[in-house]
Design a binder for these strands. Structure first.
Length: 429
RNA sequence: GUGAGCGUGGCUCAAUGGUAGAGCAUUGGACUGUGGAUCCAAGGGUUGGGGGUUCAAGUCCCCUCGCUCACCCCA
């Protein structure tokens, strides 16, 4: 037999139990918040027909995993959850009620080169509202982002907000290059500063005077200034309305801001765009989204407006890990483990069953090692309570040992149940 | 796609161009009911792969594959 490589395909990860505990904690909170805002969950296939995916992402299209099936049909792995949503809406329009609020938490694939916080297979969590042009929908989406981050205990985050219409207006104002080139250059403000952006603009063939106008627009600090710069255009009015709602939602001003340099790479955005950044671990954006009124129309004649965001769970987790933001309570999968000796295995099974029937999360030691090793197993899994089934079982008693305090007592099964339940409840809060 | 750094037992890492090693893990034995123990012993490697320089290469050079980080772009 030829020695085979045992490894993952590049950019693909295995999630071991320890990883999954943290992941499910985050997923659970996301889902809780989505549901609390009236969003419903859907799922769509990993594979889409190529024609569904093609032409939606601009230059990003080269990062789509593309294959042929056995009959030579052109297919691809989904690149995000927004285009599949657009297909679903176009395809099942008559079965949906609008405005349609849905969330989705699934894998997406990108044939990118991996690096910190970036993988070829990763989960995205999308929340979108389809079928309304109201800025209230955009505000609702931003509120979900805000509530989620608050709930996960994020402190230093800022939701940057801009409007594609203002980038377009800026491009029309100077009438040089293309909207996309202006967007690309302006987007580098964060990393390269004004001088770097100017250089980018000049390299892209935009005149010095045009560049100066753009740089001036980049100095705009708030929506009021934007109004005097752009006039009473649609882009400004939308943002004005949006910002007033954000205040109504109670979103603190330190957590959102008008940012003229936010552009976002994807082609399909048409209105307000937003993304969340954290200062501390340098990891790029943790959420990104915006309004895409034209995308669904690309599948279906009639235009259906939509807005939404994607939350980058992988990056949320990366930040939380780096800043030790996970609560300690999620370290143990069970409340109690039942340990036993050669002569008491049968009794141990019965006791474990009774504990489980009481709704107590119970592990039963399934190995063949001695008590010392069984306690080691319990400690290694972060389990708080051990029930030791020994000779005392003849008198209807077992040993309940608390691994944290190292104290133990001989109790009846009833007393064990109430003691463990008590503890589990306290910890649950 | 571009650039940089790194590849040594399953894992973490040693080894001036001069006999490939340690710790952990694994397996067997000792230890009969209290925190992954301890003691004894064993197995495990074409130093990612290929070529070159040299009396001699884990070490130097070239190619290739892989990993990591950055750029581009993105979550």
């Amino acid at each position: 037999m030829v020695k085979q490589e045992i490894r993952n395909y590049r950019g693909m990860r295995d999630f071991l139990p320890e990883d999954m505990r943290r992941r499910e904690y985050v997923f659970g909170i996301l889902e809780e918040i989505f549901k609390a805002h009236g969003f419903e969950k859907i799922e769509t296939p990993a594979i889409e027909l190529w024609e569904i995916l093609s032409g939606k992402y601009g230059e990003e299209e080269k990062l789509i995993y593309r294959f042929k099936d056995r009959k030579g049909r052109d297919i691809g792995l989904r690149y995000d959850l927004t285009v599949p949503l657009a297909r679903v809406v176009a395809q099942h329009k008559s079965e949906l009620t609008f405005p349609f609020k849905r969330y989705q938490m699934e894998r997406v694939w990108r044939a990118d080169r991996p690096q910190k916080g970036r993988y070829r297979e990763f989960y995205q969590c999308d929340v979108d509202i389809v079928g309304t042009k109201s800025m209230l929908a955009d505000a609702e989406v931003i509120s979900v982002i805000y509530e989620t981050l608050k709930r996960l205990n994020f402190k230093n985050f800022i939701i940057r907000i801009n409007n594609r219409k203002l980038i377009k207006a800026l491009y029309e104002k100077i009438g040089e290059g293309s909207e996309l080139e202006v967007a690309r250059a302006v987007d580098k403000m964060d990393k390269k500063g004004p001088r770097g952006v100017k250089e980018e603009l000049l390299n892209r063939g935009i005149s010095p005077s045009g560049s100066d106008i753009i740089l001036k627009a980049m100095e705009i600090k708030d929506i009021k200034e934007a109004k005097s710069f752009y006039g009473n255009c649609e882009g400004v009015m939308e943002l004005e309305e949006l910002f007033s709602y954000l205040v109504d939602y109670g979103i603190l001003e330190e957590h959102f801001a008008y940012d003229p340099s936010l552009a976002r790479g994807l082609d399909y955005y048409t209105g307000p765009i937003f993304e969340t950044v954290v200062r501390k671990p340098r990891i790029g954006s943790i959420t990104g989204g915006g309004r895409y009124d034209g995308l669904i129309g690309a599948f279906r004649g009639a235009e259906i407006p939509a807005t939404g965001t994607s939350l980058g769970v992988e990056r949320l987790i990366a930040v939380m890990e780096e800043l030790s933001m996970f609560p300690t309570g999620i370290s143990s999968p069970v409340d109690v483990i039942v340990c036993h000796f050669a002569e008491t295995k049968g009794e141990a099974v019965k006791i474990a069953s009774k504990l489980r029937a009481e709704g107590i999360r119970t592990d039963l030691y399934t190995g063949e090692k001695d008590l010392r090793a069984q306690l080691g197993y319990a400690a290694g899994n972060g389990i708080s309570f051990v029930v030791i089934v020994g000779d005392e079982v003849k008198e209807g008693k077992v040993v309940l040992k608390n691994l944290r305090s190292r104290k133990q007592k001989i109790l009846s099964l009833q007393d064990v149940i109430s003691e463990v339940k008590n503890f589990a409840e306290v910890r649950g809060k």
